[in-house]
């Protein structure tokens, strides 16, 4: 059974905070709250998840020591919001843990020294936007994780939400073009060889940039192909 366990003062814009020592999934709990007519915005945060979910219900390993939360706010139809959340998170992680090399992999996976350490899943559900985030942080740095203690975890949360508040306003006012250069600075280098697993196919080519609405541009056989979906795999070697 979930119990209240995390006490931190977060910015007002995130609304009510529901915190748990253990829960099945913060994303699932957010949906339950919405179904119960819980007013938006609110935050579900947990110290561990027994059924943490990634994209398409893939299991997200969520033992104690990581950071797991779902922010529930007003719906956003522009899918580039997904990239903006990634920018905010990487910028904060870079500041707090400068010894690791962070990369934002399109659209919003976060790698530390080429290992995925954070995932973001956004869903428009019942007139609310759910932003679910899992960050692998452990004090002893085991698994694919960022070593950090309780204080650092709270610092990540506080700074991330403050930045997100600011970026949400900018996104409302200026859209993704405001963030394009930031994104390019944080993502893989232009010209890197990548594979993209799009629905029904896999294509290899060279990363050629991001459109001003957030799509990935792949150069393949002297043609530029724009993707709004797909999983990018870096070819390192």
């Amino acid at each position: 059974m979930a119990t209240k366990s995390i006490e931190i003062n977060l910015p007002d814009f995130i609304g009510k905070v529901f915190s748990y020592s253990e829960i099945d999934s913060t994303q699932v709990e957010a949906k339950r709250k919405i179904a119960q007519k819980c007013p938006v915005p609110f935050l579900i945060i947990a110290k561990s998840q027994t059924g943490g979910l990634g994209r398409f219900r893939r299991k997200w390993y969520s033992p104690t020591g990581g950071i797991y939360f779902t922010l529930t706010t007003k719906p956003v139809n522009n899918p580039a919001i997904s990239l903006v959340v990634g920018i905010a998170l990487v910028e904060i992680l870079k500041t707090i843990i400068p010894e690791r090399k962070f990369i934002l992999k399109w659209p919003n996976d976060i790698l530390a020294d080429n290992e995925k350490i954070a995932g973001i899943l956004a869903e428009n559900f019942n007139n609310a936007l759910l932003i679910g985030i899992g960050i692998n942080t452990f004090e002893n740095g085991k698994f694919n994780s960022i070593p950090c203690d309780e204080n650092s975890r709270n610092e990540i949360l506080l700074k991330f939400f403050k930045k997100l508040d600011f970026y949400f306003d900018k996104f409302d006012q200026k859209g993704f073009p405001y963030f394009l250069n930031k994104y390019i600075e944080l993502t893989i280098p232009i010209g890197a060889e990548i594979e993209i697993f799009a629905p029904n196919e896999k294509i290899t080519g060279f990363f050629s940039g991001i459109t001003d609405d957030g799509r990935l541009i792949l150069e393949c056989d002297n043609k530029k192909i724009k993707f709004s979906n797909g999983e990018v795999s870096l070819r390192i070697g």
């Binding site: 139809n77 899918p79 659209p107 956004a122 428009n124 559900f125």
Partner: peptide, 9 residues
């Protein structure tokens, strides 16, 4: 419909 890891009902 999913676009850029945003799932829309």
């Amino acid at each position: 419909i999913e676009a850029m890891k945003l799932f829309n009902e």
